[in-house]
């Protein structure tokens, strides 16, 4: 776009109307407007702006929902989430996320990846502290009163359905019908049942295959996966001593 050409001569610059008055008029207009539209500022510690519910401050957790799948710890770009053992109110111990907020960059990926919406984004951003130890939020300290807007939900479409065209269906986050599946390479399996013990969602069951072990004459048990319960945390894949498990992506 061609802007209208403006020419300025030295005399123009130095004339008092140009130099002083014009600038003063602009400033005076601003002064009048600012006075009319008072107040223009917020007295911060006493008054606060209202932030939208999806505002991403530090991560928070709803402990009742958490199943300890460690997906947040795996997907954190800064690796500031660590799984620590806590005592459950119902008795027993389980692993729950502990967040080093000093390293957290408030990207909200942990809340986005959480399959049960236990990790939430909170509007808390005043996190200054005198010591670094105070910035390590253990699972109890990490708790935050929950509101539906704090959860991060998204909907996605599948690539194969997009290519087909027509009306494209969208699926909610972690829809059990379309999420990735864990598949077993049966000949590698030694029936150690470590995957079933590790699974935080209780989606793996050691089921008899009907075959008998030729040496011991006992029935062979293999893991059976319940896809509706599975949250694709991949802990079974990590724990498998024979690398018999792998992920089959649904695209």
């Amino acid at each position: 776009m061609r802007i209208e050409e403006r020419t300025y001569t030295k005399a123009d610059h130095l004339r008092p109307t140009g130099y002083v008055l014009k600038s003063l008029i602009v400033t005076f207009k601003g002064l009048v407007r600012a006075t009319k539209n008072r107040p223009c500022t917020v007295l911060y510690p006493w008054e606060r702006l209202v932030y939208p519910d999806n505002y991403r401050g530090r991560p928070g957790i709803v402990l009742e929902r958490c199943i300890g799948c460690a997906r947040c710890a795996r997907d954190c770009p800064n690796r500031c989430i660590e799984m620590v053992e806590v005592e459950l109110p119902a008795g027993g111990k389980a692993k729950r996320p502990q967040v080093n907020v000093g390293r957290c960059m408030m990207c909200g990926n942990c809340a986005e990846t959480c399959p049960v919406n236990a990790m939430i984004v909170t509007p808390e951003f005043e996190l200054c502290s005198y010591s670094r130890a105070d910035l390590i939020f253990d699972p109890v300290k990490l708790q935050y009163p929950h509101k539906p807007g704090y959860e991060v939900n998204y909907e996605f479409a599948l690539l194969s359905e997009m290519k087909k065209g027509g009306e494209v269906r969208t699926y909610a986050k972690n829809d059990p019908n379309v999420h990735d599946n864990v598949v077993l390479d049966a000949p590698k399996c030694i029936s150690c049942s470590r995957c079933a013990k590790t699974c935080p969602a209780g989606a793996i069951e050691m089921a008899e295959t009907g075959e008998l072990n030729p040496k011991t004459k006992k029935p062979i048990k293999r893991p059976k996966f319940d896809t509706t319960k599975c949250v694709v945390c991949e802990q079974c894949i990590e724990v498998c001593p024979k690398s018999a498990l792998s992920i089959k992506e649904v695209l």
Binding site: P52, Y55, R56, Y154, E155
Partner: peptide, 24 residues
Amino acid sequence: LCKLSGARMTYNYCRIGGVRNDLP
């Protein structure tokens, strides 16, 4: 942009294969 993405400066809004959420 804060209303759209949830942050004032570092938006983390685009995703590989689209955007994080629809318009509010």
